[in-house]
Amino acid sequence: MKHYTATYWAFFKTSLLEQFQYRAAMAIWMISRILEPIIYLTVWTTVAQARGGSVGSYSPADFAAYYIVLMLVNQFTFSWVMHIYDFRIRQGELSNFLLKPIHPIHADIAENIAYKVLTAIIIFPTALLLFFLFDPNLAFHIQTFAVFLLALGIAFLMRFFIEWTLALVAFWTTRNEAINQMYFTLGLFLSGRIAPIDLLPGAIQTLADALPFRWAVAFPVELMLGRLSQEQILNGFTMQAVWLLAGFLLIQLTWRLGVKKYSAVGS
């Protein structure tokens, strides 16, 4: 355990320093993750106003709260491994990771956390600004917040496992763009980014229940907003646990099979 803490700390520090050099680029790449919730917040607010005040159980102030929290949850749980892994494999860069006496996922997790710590400097002031601009209906209860943090932590790991598995598909395809875009498209609808899940048609809601997207993003958001009953919260944590375990097993399997298939291209 102590060994892991030291390794993570080392990875974390290196990534932090490395990424700090690209701070301007980092801020620019965040624009779309900030703009997207604002776009859909505006669209749904406009719809609510046209309907005389609300859509389903959401008033404009509820939409504001939903999308501001969603922006934060998405920022803290997203990863980019699947966009760089095919490059790592094509260029033979993966060989460096294989030589280290530790599973390569740890370096990626530490790098991701370093990025999130750095970008917190941008995302929190942005959230605060949106808070004043859109006047959300968001009450703060310390218990809810504690449970929310737990859900957010599981969501982060679960999403990381699943996206890392997806990245490993590059062992077989060497180009992942098309698969990544399909994953992105599904996530857009099923994780509650285009609309809160309650507002989607019934069939899509059923699909959202079964797949991991909803439990990685929409569930922590709705939890924070206090929209879920005790039963729904328990159900959410169960689904998170199931997908966390599934993701963990999938990584073990694909990694083992993939590395066997890998023959360093290049260098």
Binding site: V43, W44, V47, A50, R51, V55, G56, L199, L200, P201
Partner: peptide, 8 residues
């Protein structure tokens, strides 16, 4: 999805 909740 948006227009299933509104006309304009």
């Amino acid at each position: 999805i948006v227009f299933s909740h509104t006309d304009t």
